[in-house]
Design a protein around this nucleic acid. Structure first.
Length: 437
RNA sequence: GCCCUCAUCGUCUAGCGGUUAGGACGUUGGAUUCUCAUUCCAAAAACCGGGGUUCGAUUCCCCGUGGGGGUGCCA
């Protein structure tokens, strides 16, 4: 059986961005789908721009997205080393072959490759056969002795026995050069798959690191759920069909085939990305939600550590279904963790104009104080009873109490909210609201 | 300029000669709910243009137009 070997070959010259991430993802998916190997190779041949910091960000980003590699940095493998900066002896051998074959020549201290001036056929799994002819000879070793991208890329794909080259469409024009090199080494080129580019959501051109949503690290910083980001990325240029979009990774692996990838570029959509994130967030088992929420809160101004664990859990439990993203969490639950809350003045004015807010609060407080058990049912019953006794809408009590105890008009269900806050705090906050307003 | 490539609602896409052109995000309206969010219902919204081929083209071919990429001793 022909074992699939694919590689992701980034150069650490900049932060890890969404286009690269998707290329890595498609390589990874194809490897998983076929039971092949996914190889990470670092193309650090540009010492002017390569930075260790970028490498760290890249490795971290891949791990965050769950794209583990079978061979590469940290894990090793039989085709190592996996840093091009450590493979010069290998390149040297191949360069000698080219020199002996007479397909190269020196000019201005650099080594050039003689192109054949024949049309090269690129067998592309996504685009079919693409024919392109190289017109000019090109440099393969710089005058400073360093081999260039075209050469090392091909040499490594040969020596690492890569079977499928899945990369961005921006490389399509390079590919005829690469095929010439494969031919020069007497090696049958691998199959290619040039995937479409991700375009920026506004304006023209492909996504660049300056565009919002472009950097993988920003998703992590903003507490996006990696599964959601990955799921969304799968859908940029590929579709599972059957009108489905949100689906578990193992299903995607089963369905994904590189030949099904679209040919046209896709525009990035921040809103849809956020939608995916909120769907995943809501679907999180509470234990996971709690763990993640705690990390977010510890990095925020909310002093959760001063509160009882069970209290924190209770707060989070009633908020999960209401939350759309973790970045909103601190602000969303802040009033559970402060001594003195602040009131939304605008909302206050609005409610006061609508009905007699103070009276409703006093009525509520009187009845609430007599309640033995504070839970969803008891509070709900209480509110309904009050509303019917005083012949007003339940909303008048609900809105008033919510504002008095949380300072705002939005939040989790009031009944759960009061249960979590407890009798004492609820009454305290109503009192202080009445005193202040 | 030259070379390569792509083209379905605003966006992501399904479609692979005959469909009321489907879904999703977003937008708008409505229902439910204690607010918000959810959920549900509904609406507006697309086959770039022109030639062919064909009984019949969104679908196949050609041209044009538009988009994207490449055109480095960057990768």
């Amino acid at each position: 059986m022909n074992n699939v070997r694919v590689r992701f070959a980034p150069s650490p010259t900049g932060l890890f961005h969404i286009g690269s991430a998707r290329t890595a993802l498609f390589n990874w998916l194809y490897a998983k789908h076929t039971g092949g190997n996914f190889i990470l190779r670092i193309e650090d041949t540009d010492d002017g721009r390569d930075r260790k910091e970028f490498l760290d960000v890249l490795i971290h980003g891949l791990h965050w997205l769950g794209l583990n590699w079978d061979e590469g940095p940290d894990v090793g493998g039989e085709c190592g080393p996996y840093f091009q900066s450590q493979r010069s002896d290998i390149y040297q051998k191949y360069i000698e072959v080219l020199k002996k074959s007479g397909l190269s020549y020196e000019k201005d201290g650099a080594l050039y490759f003689k192109v054949s001036h024949k049309p090269q056929v690129i067998h592309d799994l996504i685009r079919g056969n693409v024919i392109r002819e190289e017109e000019k000879d090109f440099v393969i070793v710089r005058s400073n002795g360093k081999p260039v991208f075209h050469l090392v890329n091909v040499v490594d794909d040969i020596s690492m026995r890569i079977t499928h080259i899945i990369r961005g469409e921006d490389h399509l024009s390079n590919t005829s050069k690469h095929i010439e090199l494969f031919n020069a080494f007497g090696v049958k080129p691998p199959l290619f798959a040039h995937i479409p580019l991700i375009l920026k959501s506004q304006g023209s051109g492909k996504m660049s690191k300056r565009d919002t949503g472009a950097l993988i690290e920003d998703y992590e910083k903003n507490h996006f759920i990696a599964d959601a980001v990955r799921n969304y990325l799968c859908l940029l240029g590929w579709s599972p069909k059957e009108d489905r979009e949100i689906l578990p990774l193992n299903e995607i692996i089963g369905l994904f085939d590189i030949g099904d990838v679209n040919r046209n570029n896709a525009r990035f959509d921040e809103k849809k990305m956020s939608f995916f994130n909120s769907e995943y967030l809501r679907a999180l088992p509470f234990g996971d939600f709690y763990d993640r929420a705690l990390i977010v809160l510890r990095n925020s101004q909310v002093a959760v550590e001063k509160f009882d664990t069970q209290y924190v859990r209770n707060v989070l439990a009633i908020c999960q279904e209401k939350l759309r993203s973790f970045i909103e969490l601190p602000n969303f639950i802040e009033y559970f963790f402060v001594e003195k809350i602040t009131y939304d003045r605008e909302a206050l004015a609005k409610l006061m104009a609508k009905f007699d807010l103070r009276t409703r609060l006093r009525e509520f407080k009187l009845a609430f104080e007599l309640l033995d058990i504070i839970d969803e049912t008891s509070v709900e019953n209480l509110v309904h009873e009050l509303a019917s006794n005083h012949d007003v809408n339940t909303g008048e009590y609900i809105h008033s109490v919510r504002l008095a105890v949380s300072g705002r008009t939005v939040g989790p269900s009031l009944f759960g909210l009061l249960r979590v806050l407890g009798k004492e705090v609820t009454i305290g906050r109503i009192n202080s609201f009445l005193f202040q307003n």
